[in-house]
Every structure is written in structure tokens, then in C-alpha cells.
Amino acid sequence: MTEKPFVDIRHAQKSFGSLEVLKDINLQVSRGQIVAIIGPSGSGKSTLLRAINDLDPLTGGEVWLEDTQVNKKLPHRQYEKHINQVRQDIGMVFQHFNLFPHLTVRENIKLAPKMLKGLSDAEADKLAEEQLDKVGMLERIDYYPSQLSGGQKQRVAIARALAMKPKVMLFDEATSALDPELVEEVNLVMKKLAEEHMTMIIVTHEMGFAESVCDRVLFMDQGVVVEEGPPDVIFRNPTNERTRNFLRKHLANANK
């Protein structure tokens, strides 16, 4: 790679006791790139994603975002300050949305920008409206999360993350908890982000989506990156036996 990586994961290693779930993983993502991480459950793909914003801290290795080391070694207080700052630049979307149920859609989006970026109430309102418009949820701005469908919740969750103007977005199986007919509306929002050249790292089980949207695909199994490359190679012509097995099983299940 000639360009300096935007997100740079170096020798990522993580153990839970004697169980090693990430084994020396390296991943470089350049600005605007969209990377999918696929693999069987327990392969470590979510753990890797959650290490990027230090939600699941690594036991070894480094994570960099531009010129900042995310998992810098610092005394507790300083580290908290540092990580809270860094996380503002890393948006994350969860499988179960994790909207704040006691707040309306509007308040869900306004909360962090007001608190952390010092936006006025009017500015935050405007920001919430912009972001909701983008994900097609402006009409529901004063609803509570419990009044929304799964797909709508996830679109709001994406808007909430985008309101912090992150440099990179992480998607942790963003469509896995959705009914099949609701997956598409979330995929469309993610595609739109891709067209705007948002840097994205996506853990997914949606092979079709990964193939059509991503620039690169990583196949992980048992804590290692088994194979990586452009989507047409990984999906059409994988060289590794484990990748082939996984895709075959996955396709068989998908066609059931």
C-alpha cells in the first residue's frame, strides 16, 4: 500500500485466560475503504471489530486511527480521557441497535453531540434532523425506540453514530437481528454511506451485501485471518480450503 493506512491494526492478539481468540492479526484499511469481515461464529471477527474502539481491549498489539494509537498504554485517568476522545471518531452500530429506550429518537441522537461537542440545543436539533433525513427516518423523530420496527431502529442507530461525524464506522452484524424483509432498508443506508466514501469495517453474515458493497473481504476462522482479497476472488474463487468450506455451508443454509 502506498498510502498510509487510515485504520491500522498491528499484531492484534487477544486471550481470555488460556483461550486465544485473536492470533497476530494485521489489518490495514485506507481512507474510504470498505472492508467486510466474514467467518463462522466464534472466529473472532466481532472481537476484532470491538478491539478497534477498545470496547474489547486487546491483550497484545496496536490499533491506530490515522496518527493516534487507540489502545495507548496510559494511567487509568488519562486513558479514559484519551479513549473518550478517540471514540468520538469511531462510530459503531450494534446487532441489537442499543438505542436508549428512555429517550425519543431525537434525544437519542442529540445526547452525545450536545454533551461531548458542546452543541447548542438548536444546533443539535438541526443535526438530528439532517442525520435522520439521511437514513429516511425524519418522520419518526419524536417516536420512542419501542415504537419502531427493527429496521427503523437500526437506521436510527446509524444516524446516532453519524451525528458524531466519525472518521470510520464499525458495523457489528448490523442486520443479523432483523427479520429478512427489514434487512434491505438497512443495507440501503449502508450502501449510501459507501457511496459517500465513508470508511467502513463491517462484520456480516450477508455475503451478497459484502460482495456488492465492499472493496475487500477478510475471512476469519479460529482467531486468524485465513484469507483476504477483493470480494470477487474471495466469493468466486477462494484459494483456501476453509474459506471454501465456510462459503459452501453458508450458501447451503442461505438457500434452505
Binding site: N84, R87, M92, F94, N98, F100, H102, L111, A112, M115
Partner: peptide, 27 residues
């Protein structure tokens, strides 16, 4: 309270206390 709530708050950049005060405790 589901740990996803704390994770979502922390991911947005809130401190432990802010997540507790504005997200966890109200619920």
C-alpha cells in the same frame, strides 16, 4: 440494564460517569 446500553454510550465517547448518569441510571 442491558450492557449494550453502556457499550453504546461509551462508544459515542461518553465517560463512565456520563454513561451512568444519562443512559443507565434513568432506566
Amino acid at each position: 440494564i442491558d450492557k449494550g446500553q453502556r457499550e453504546a454510550a461509551r462508544t459515542l465517547g461518553m465517560s463512565r460517569w456520563q454513561a451512568m448518569r444519562y443512559v443507565i441510571l434513568p432506566q
